[in-house]
Each structure stands twice: as structure tokens, then as C-alpha cells.
């Protein structure tokens, strides 16, 4: 240990020279075992023939992708049309996730800003308060939300008693309830990265902008947002991606009347359908979409880096 501290950089390099590839081995093992292998398995399964009542037959087949994109009628013998069912399900999930992300951003940004601009001990207290609800399991929080907003729940009872509304607002089993659930579940994922970005922001820039006659709005748009943008984007990804696969909120708060991507895939493995290749194909299509979005973002970042 002591020797390590006293050593200068060049001798450190020589100590570990040639070990580089060996030292990175554990990382590769973890990535290979937990990331590459499962994804490869999914890819292979999506191109296999389905076995009745679950399982796969080891024969190449495009049936899973065909089922996703082409509608051949109730009995499967009509000329193929475009299949809207799964596009609608994917679109619904994407839309819900996008709205949830937007709402989180709308509330999360000012919250993060507020926390980041408090003085030392207060800052920690506010951060602590934000994380407290998340010590409780997500399932329990979602069910509690259900209790709160049901027709005879405390929220409606209170509004009725206060005379704000003449009759209970129907919220449970609606899209509003699902949005509320997603928003509540993932808000801290938005607040924390933005907080980290805002905390590093040098307020001298704001003062400089004010000196140069920039209004508040111009300062926010031209100075602050570009600087904290990485935090905002990280927050958006952290909220959007899990919302896309969420099925707790849609099931418990939305009444499970409509499939989400997550519940559609689950049904293929655990439901009557027992269609493993189709479940794998749907998962692959979802993964590809997420990858395209992330690649797009990465390229944008690189372009900006070059400028």
C-alpha cells in the first residue's frame, strides 16, 4: 500500500503492464454472462418454431416475426394485411412512457433545482426526503396509490367533504391512474441526475448573462439548459426505459384491460398462449427500438463533442 502511494505513475504502469487484458477479464465475464448470453438466447429463440403449450422446436422459423407484422385474419388463412394489434400495444406503451417522462421532467427539474440551490445541511435533508418513499417496495406503493384514489378512497372522501366536487371523481382503472402510478414510481430517477448536473452549475454564468441583459427566460434557455442537458437526458432515459416495460402500474391501477409491452410478453411465457418464440421476438423488437433511440442520442452527443 505505502509503496503504491510513493510510486510514480510510470512504475505503476510497468507493474501492471501486460496484465491489462487479464484484469479486465472479470468485467468481460460479467457482461458476457449477464448481458450477451441472455440476449443471444432471446435472439435465437425468436427464430425457432413454437412448440404447442410452451417450449421451442429447434427448427428455423420466421413465424414469430410474421405474426407480429402481418394479420391473416381470425383463422390465419386470409391474405396478409398489416397487423395493427401489436403496433397499437407498442404505441400505447411508448406513449404512456413518453407522457410519464414529460411529467417527471416538468416536476423533477424545478424540484432538482430547488434542492441543488439550498445550503449544505438542508440539501442533504431534502435529498433524504425524496428517497424515503422508495425504501418501500414498489408493489406496496402502487397498491397504496390504488387505495388513495378509488371512488370511496380518502382523496375522494376529502374532496366531497370539503365541497369541492359534487360526486366522486372516477380515477381508478383509467389512463390517468396509470400515468399517476408511473410518474410516482419513477420521479426520483429524474430528480437525482438533474440534481447532480445542477449542483455543478456555476452560478457566475447566470450573473454574467444578467449583466449582458439576458432575461430569466433567455438565461434558462441559452445558458442553464445546455449546461445541465446531460443530466436531463440521463433522467429522461432512466424514466422512459423502465416505464416502457412497466406492467405493475397498468395492471393494478389501469385494470389490466389492455396489454402493455411487458404484459404482452409475459402472456407468451406464462399465459395460455405459451408462444415462446413470439415472446422472444416481441422482446427483441422492443430491444431494437430502445437501442435505436440510444444510438441516436449517442451520435448527437458525439457531434456536439466535435463542435
Amino acid at each position: 500500500m505505502v509503496a503504491g502511494i510513493e510510486n510514480n505513475n510510470s512504475s505503476n504502469t510497468s507493474t501492471y503492464a501486460g496484465l491489462g487484458s487479464l484484469l479486465i477479464l472479470p468485467t468481460w465475464l460479467v457482461i458476457g454472462f449477464f448481458l450477451v448470453l441472455p440476449v443471444l438466447m432471446m435472439l435465437v429463440y425468436s427464430f425457432l418454431t413454437k412448440e404447442f403449450r410452451g417450449g421451442v422446436i429447434w427448427e428455423f422459423s420466421l413465424a414469430a416475426y410474421d405474426q407480429f407484422f402481418f394479420d391473416r385474419g381470425l383463422f390465419g388463412d386470409e391474405p396478409p394485411k398489416i397487423e395493427w394489434t401489436y403496433i397499437i400495444i407498442f404505441w400505447r406503451s411508448i406513449w404512456l412512457a413518453a407522457v410519464a417522462t414529460f411529467l417527471c421532467l416538468l416536476v423533477g427539474f424545478p424540484t432538482a433545482w430547488f434542492i441543488a440551490t439550498r445550503s449544505g445541511p438542508n440539501k442533504s435533508l431534502w435529498l433524504f426526503l425524496i428517497t424515503i418513499p422508495y425504501w418501500v417496495n414498489l408493489l406496496i406503493r402502487t397498491i397504496s396509490m390504488k387505495f388513495l384514489i378509488r371512488d370511496t378512497g380518502p382523496l375522494n372522501e376529502w374532496l366531497l367533504a370539503a365541497g369541492v366536487i359534487p360526486e366522486p371523481i372516477h380515477m381508478i382503472n383509467t389512463n390517468f391512474a396509470v400515468q399517476l402510478g408511473l410518474f410516482y414510481s419513477y420521479l426520483p430517477f429524474m430528480v437525482l441526475p438533474i440534481y447532480a448536473a445542477v449542483e455543478r452549475y456555476n452560478f457566475a454564468y447566470s450573473e454574467a448573462a444578467a449583466d449582458l441583459y439576458a432575461g430569466r427566460w433567455a438565461t434558462l434557455r441559452k445558458i442553464i439548459l445546455p449546461i445541465v442537458k446531460p443530466g436531463i437526458i440521463a433522467g429522461c432515459i432512466l424514466v422512459f426505459v423502465p416505464s416502457l416495460g412497466a406492467f405493475l402500474a397498468p395492471d393494478l391501477l389501469g385494470g389490466a384491460k389492455n396489454f402493455m409491452i411487458g404484459s404482452l410478453i409475459e402472456e407468451q411465457f406464462k399465459g395460455n398462449a405459451g408462444n415462446w418464440p413470439f415472446g422472444a421476438a416481441a422482446a427483441m423488437i422492443l430491444l431494437s427500438m430502445v437501442l435505436i433511440v440510444l444510438t441516436f442520442y449517442a451520435r448527437q452527443q458525439m457531434k456536439q463533442g466535435k463542435r
Binding site: 381470425l74 383463422f75 389492455n258 396489454f259 404482452l264 395460455n272 398462449a273
Partner: peptide
């Protein structure tokens, strides 16, 4: 049987789409 189950699956998915 399989051919009926396939139709059942389609009915169910369409119901919940």
C-alpha cells in the same frame, strides 16, 4: 387442440389489445 387454441389466443389478444 392446437388449431382451436391458436384462434382462442387471437381472440384473447384482440380483446386485450
Amino acid at each position: 387442440p392446437q388449431e382451436v387454441q391458436t384462434v382462442y389466443d387471437k381472440i384473447w389478444t384482440d380483446l386485450k389489445k
